[in-house]
Simulated scan of single mutants.
Amino acid sequence: MNRQPALDIILVAYPSAQKAALYGLVDLFAVADELSRKRLERAAPVLRVLSMDPDRFSGGSFGRAEGSTSLPDAPSVVIIPPSLTGPPNPETVPELLTWLRTCHEGGSILAAVCAGTFLLAATGLLDGRPATTHWSAAARLQQAFPAIRIDPDRLLVDDGDILTVGGIMSWPDLGLRLIDRLLGPAAMLKTARYLLIDPPRHDQRQYRHFAPNLTHGDRTVLKVQHWLRTETARDATVADMTRLSGLEERTFLRRFHKATSLTPLAYLQHLRVEKGRDLLEATTLPLDQIAWEVGYQDSGAFRKIFTRLLGQTPADYRRRVSPAGDSR
């Protein structure tokens, strides 16, 4: 392995790319490189990180990185970082999209973080494949690129030659997964331990907040949605929702799903879990009382639904968000 050339990682440093991700990934890979070189007793770099010059987006050549270093024809990895304000409009960077497709055809792994997935999606390479992005942007991404199989619950989707990660601060998860892929799990774990960070996470359900659609225009369904937020609806059932709507049951079920993309029961579960997580964060109430407050007579039922929707138990969630809280 000592005779092998360095593995090249290209960071696409578009103008609005998050600086923390750009600099952080450089540091993360630098640590992995140093630790691997010591382990292998190798003087030459194991990983080489290059940052593409942002000026190259304005119709110029993509043949150089920052400074005068030439970009490799087929880098090992190309990463599209996240952005607080969003990536460039794909229509303004056609050369970048072409270059990404060329790299992929040449065998490069392509990876995108958060909003960077929108740029990667514009290449067409995600069509028919699973991907993720920030949970709040998942619906917009799905609408813009309906051929992609969006999974907003997953924090990291590794589909072999293409990786996507969800949150804007999930770039360490991507970096560690790539170190695992390029240098092996031992190198990844050693890098994580050195930097005091956890190995890659896979789930972002615990970060999601339920944001119901209230702009669908169906006033009857909207009336039910508003009622479900009131104290009198704490023990509401689907039958109660149907009666309030004044519609025949099948008609109500059809219209509710069309307006909200959820069944009435699933909608009710999301509302109750959302209220439950607020109580777990802000109070020290025991789980039995929280379950009752949100409309469940059986805390076991609440625990089961909470775990299914958020990917962790109420006790684990409370420990994570409020270490001093009562985790009963």
Rank of each mutant, 00 (worst) to 15 (best):
L47R: 07
A192F: 02
Y194V: 04
L196H: 11
A44N: 07
V294E: 03
P200C: 10
L84A: 15
L71G: 04
R140D: 12
R255G: 00
I162F: 03
P130C: 13
N2I: 14
L253I: 00
G107S: 08
R328T: 06
K275N: 06
A17P: 01
T263L: 00
V165S: 01
S51L: 11
C103H: 04
D161F: 07
P212C: 06
L110N: 00
H257N: 11
T220E: 06
Y317C: 02
S327G: 11
R208G: 06
A21M: 10
R154N: 15
K223T: 12
L163H: 07
T102Q: 15
A291G: 15
A291L: 03
T215C: 03
E231L: 09
A121E: 06
R308P: 01
S136N: 08
P185G: 09
D218M: 03
A259L: 00
V12A: 06
R320Q: 14
I79M: 13
E34V: 08
R243G: 02
W227R: 02
G24E: 04
S108K: 07
A44F: 12
R3T: 14
G311W: 09
R140W: 14
P94I: 03
D55C: 12
R254T: 01
L280W: 05
R219I: 07
M241P: 06
I168C: 09
S68Q: 10
I197V: 14
V113R: 02
K275I: 00
D8A: 15
A32M: 05
L84E: 13
L244C: 02
T85E: 13
A112H: 09
L310P: 03
P94L: 04
V157I: 15
G128R: 05
P94M: 06
Y14E: 00
L22M: 14
K223I: 08
L285D: 03
A282W: 11
G67E: 13
G325E: 04
R308L: 11
S170I: 02
L11N: 03
H104R: 15
E293P: 01
K38R: 14
D55F: 11
G166D: 04
N2R: 12
H270C: 15
L222G: 02
F62P: 02
A211F: 13
P286H: 05
P314G: 13
S245T: 12
T132C: 09
D316G: 00
T98V: 10
V294P: 04
G116L: 11
R272I: 01
R149H: 14
D316F: 03
K258W: 02
L178G: 03
M1W: 07
E66C: 14
T102G: 11
L253A: 00
Q4V: 10
L287K: 09
V93H: 00
G67Q: 13
D235Q: 11
P200K: 15
V113P: 01
G106C: 03
T92P: 00
